[in-house]
Design a protein around this nucleic acid. Structure first.
Lengths: 226, 226
DNA sequence: CAGGGTATTAAAAAATTGTAAACTTGGACC
DNA sequence: GGTCCAAGTTTACAATTTTTTAATACCCTG
């Protein structure tokens, strides 16, 4: 589906399991990073900042639970999704797992179908939430749930497409969005509109905001700066 | 914890399991209603409007899945939490369960500790305000228990749909409700009515209230402002 | 200074909503 | 059963806003 670009870190000490998970997740279109023990997982989590982390409970160096607690204690991973793999009937762990900050767990033996389904459910939920949470960039505030934009306490009324376009750009400050990406995200894959349409909307946003927060990258696209 | 007043409906055909669950949930401070099969569950769900429904997948009369789908198709239960009890390794069901609209599932054999933990997690997540409390928004008062609306001490009589629509919008001031959301919440998932219906009702509300408290967000929906 | 790209503008086209009025339905009442 | 009434829905059209197109001006780079 729309799994593109989602990074998943999988940590398990059994190479076979790791490979099965990697294979299945990649087939679904996710970017997969693997780790072979607790310390490795921590290291790779920091360097790659995945969207979701799958942790086996039983691992050398550090257990999944320990890794989970360490991650959760850092603001960087406060929002990162964590899914635990636990042994069957391991009540204590299941309860502790949820308490230690995991978002979900799947019991072993792992069925790829179930795992994929859970992973998708988690990502779906979080992406829904993120598209509804308040976005603050300096003196600019974007509230998708209220469909409101504020600049220095002054409320600005944007039309639908303008809002969506601004929201897209502001969701990843600094990152350049190609004109194609913008068309796909805001207009949809199938809709065909002329190229100048984007310019016009950008102009209206700039005008209404009275703020120079969108910069042009000639020949490439637009990006949000602050 | 803060389980006070939370109603939980438990449906399972095995009396022993039912009793164990009931005992444990009551000990946690929940109000528990029990049902012995699918039809019974539907009946009691409608009459008691629980906050959370625990459904065994395998039940006489109607399976947990069927019950779940029927419930989800009614606006009354759109927000109600549903937790499924599935047999171990029952992959197909687990996947289908999540797809059919359940919020979570727990595998049998059930451990009370795990179940309690999951139930608490679900209820925590959805700490929505009850739809039966008095709402005051400026000079507007909405009393769902009496089905009354007041503007500056002047009582306004609204029809059922009008009332529900206003109550929905006012329940989250500022938040935009998409036309789809409105249709689902007020009319129900399965009911098919024309698009203009919403406009007409909005108009009647505006007219009757003589108050400009509902603002249009073109291409998106409506929201309550004060 | 030519060429590829972007900005600006105005106006056309499309989409969306507001409104009034007609129609449908289901229940209360006789 | 028939009649009336009110809520709810649909329809059709007007009013409005948003979105797109198109034409032109601009601006940087090689």
């Amino acid at each position: 589906m729309d799994a593109k670009g989602r990074k998943i870190l999988v940590a398990d000490d059994e190479p076979d399991i790791l490979e099965v998970l990697r294979y299945n997740l990649i087939r679904e279109g996710y970017d997969v990073i693997t780790a072979k023990d607790g310390d490795d997982a921590l290291l790779k989590a920091k360097s790659t900042r995945p969207d979701l982390i799958i942790l086996d409970i039983m691992m050398p160096k550090k257990s999944g639970m320990e890794v989970c607690e360490i991650l959760r204690s850092q603001p960087m991973f406060h929002e990162t999704l964590i899914l635990m793999l636990t042994a069957l009937n391991d009540e204590g762990f299941q309860v502790k797992g949820l308490e230690s900050g995991a978002d979900d767990y799947v019991t072993k033996p792992i069925s790829p179908k179930v795992l994929i389904s859970r992973v998708a459910a988690l990502l779906r939920r979080s992406s829904k939430e993120s598209s509804e949470t308040l976005l603050k960039r300096g003196n600019l505030t974007i509230d998708p749930s209220k469909f409101e934009v504020t600049v220095d306490d002054r409320q600005v009324v944007l039309a639908k497409k303008e809002f969506e376009l601004l929201h897209l750009l502001a969701s990843r400050p600094g990152r350049v969005f190609l004109r194609n990406e913008i068309l796909n995200q805001v207009w949809g894959n199938d809709v065909i509109v002329g190229d100048r349409t984007i310019d016009v909307h950008i102009r209206k946003i700039r005008q209404k905001l009275g703020l120079d927060c969108i910069s042009t990258v000639k020949g490439v696209g637009y990006k949000f700066v602050n």
